[in-house]
């Protein structure tokens, strides 16, 4: 009872401090809602841009379009498809990294491993700790660099190609997958694994036959969430010249074709919704 009271006090304190910080930040940055409105109404382009949101383009806004160009909606479809395509490629790389390193990043296989001989156990624990630590560090490196920075690196190395896109999306996502997969696996119920170990199965086999299937619904749910993130990254990579939504969006923006910009934004929005619906359908199927 007393603990609850104290916690409440602390929560109130934290909230108050955060509010105070927000006020200080607003003053030092000289923010005011009025100036924001002023900026929006003063600039004609801004008004044009936001009003275009209500009438996305279904055809090219440009007056002259080369005859070879496909219909705008077809281009929209193609851009969306390429966005999915690059995201899927990136996730393939990420899944490879995530599953292989996820195993080493989890503490399941070396903490739980029962080795009777004390010397042997010590040796295995040391070796395991090294690989565990190494894998964790490597994965942290992977995900501490943002997709866009990876993209800059790989575009310099491989030029504008599928490979650079796949690696730019896949490496940071893989680092994230490995970390989260490892945590999901470590936190799942260890009962089934315990039962199989009692049947005489070793660490690796209890891992693949008991621990992974037990964790499967959560693993899949996270993987699909990550796919959604990959979609967004893939769209943004278009700004570097890859033929995804971002590429066309940037071009339309530069030509002041705001209605086209909104069409591309809505396309991305629908892609994310589709993935969301799809993933919740899959989750329902696994979790029954």
């Amino acid at each position: 009872m007393f603990r609850t009271k104290r916690n409440l006090g602390r929560r109130f304190f934290v909230a108050a401090v955060m509010g105070l910080l927000a006020l200080v930040a607003a003053f030092t940055l000289d923010l005011s809602v009025l100036s924001l409105l002023e900026a929006m109404t003063a600039n004609k382009a801004t008004i044009n841009f936001f009003t275009a949101a209500f009438m996305p383009a279904f055809d090219y806004q440009a007056i002259e379009v080369p005859d070879s160009a496909p219909h705008f909606l077809l281009r929209l479809l193609e851009a969306s498809w390429m966005t999915v395509w690059y995201a899927a490629g990136g996730m393939a790389v990420a899944l490879l990294i995530g599953t292989s390193f996820g195993f080493f990043c989890s503490s399941f296989w070396w903490v739980e491993g029962q080795v009777k001989n004390r010397e042997q156990r010590k040796l295995i624990a040391q070796f395991a700790f090294l690989t565990y630590f190494g894998a964790r560090t490597l994965m942290t490196l992977c995900r501490s660099v943002h997709e866009l920075l990876w993209a800059v690196l790989f575009l310099a190395a491989f030029g504008v190609s599928e490979v650079s896109a796949m690696l730019a999306i896949g490496i940071p996502a893989g680092g994230m997958l490995a970390k989260i997969f490892a945590e999901i696996i470590d936190e799942s119920d260890h009962g089934p694994a315990e039962a199989l170990r009692a049947c005489g199965l070793g660490s690796f086999r209890t891992f693949i036959f008991a621990q992974c299937p037990t964790a499967l619904p959560d693993l899949v749910a996270y993987l699909l969430y990550r796919f959604e993130c990959a979609l967004r990254s893939s769209a943004v990579l278009g700004f570097f010249g890859l033929p995804t939504i971002g590429f066309y969006l940037a071009a339309s923006f530069e030509n002041l074709h705001y209605r086209e910009v909104w069409s591309y934004l809505y396309a991305l929005f629908f892609l994310v919704i589709i993935v969301d619906v799809w993933s919740s359908a899959i989750r329902r199927r696994i979790q029954r």
Binding site: P192, L196, C199, R205, F209, L216
Partner: peptide, 21 residues
């Protein structure tokens, strides 16, 4: 608490017992 793997089939759970062999 039975300690079965919930996401796989009954037959797979039963057959798991001999997979160490």
């Amino acid at each position: 608490h039975h300690n079965l793997v919930p996401t796989i089939r009954v037959i797979q759970n039963v057959m798991s017992a001999r997979l160490g062999r």
